[in-house]
């Protein structure tokens, strides 16, 4: 299983749900997990994180085991059983 942690406006969209577990298969990537996530939820969610060209929005943060996927292989980063994927739509502060 892969553990998705849901934050920010994405959590608000999903009624306050903090996490989701998804099965993990051979060859899975962050991108394929996001597609499966959307399919399971049956509502559009990935647009909060990525655009039509499968590019992360400026400000989107996706951490795989607390490492930003922008410093790994972005949406092509391989995902393995037991991984934790934290999803943050664009937000900011200071």
């Amino acid at each position: 299983m892969v553990f998705l942690q849901i934050y920010g406006t994405l959590r608000m969209m999903l009624g306050g749900r903090e996490s989701v577990e998804l099965p993990c298969y051979e060859g899975d990537t962050v991108g394929s997990l996001l597609e499966r996530f959307q399919a399971e939820e049956r509502i559009a969610v990935t647009h909060k994180l990525i655009d039509d060209r499968r590019m992360l929005h400026t400000g989107t943060i996706i951490l795989l085991n607390r490492r930003n996927i922008l410093h790994l292989d972005k949406l092509e980063t391989p995902v393995r059983d037991g991984d934790v994927l934290a999803l943050f739509p664009p937000g900011a502060g200071g």
Binding site: G8, T9, G59
Partner: peptide, 16 residues
């Protein structure tokens, strides 16, 4: 912009 149009209005700086 997703930060100034949605992120900051919805959750403010506390989202950090």
């Amino acid at each position: 912009h997703p930060v100034t149009s949605e992120g900051l209005p919805a959750l403010g700086t506390a989202v950090l």
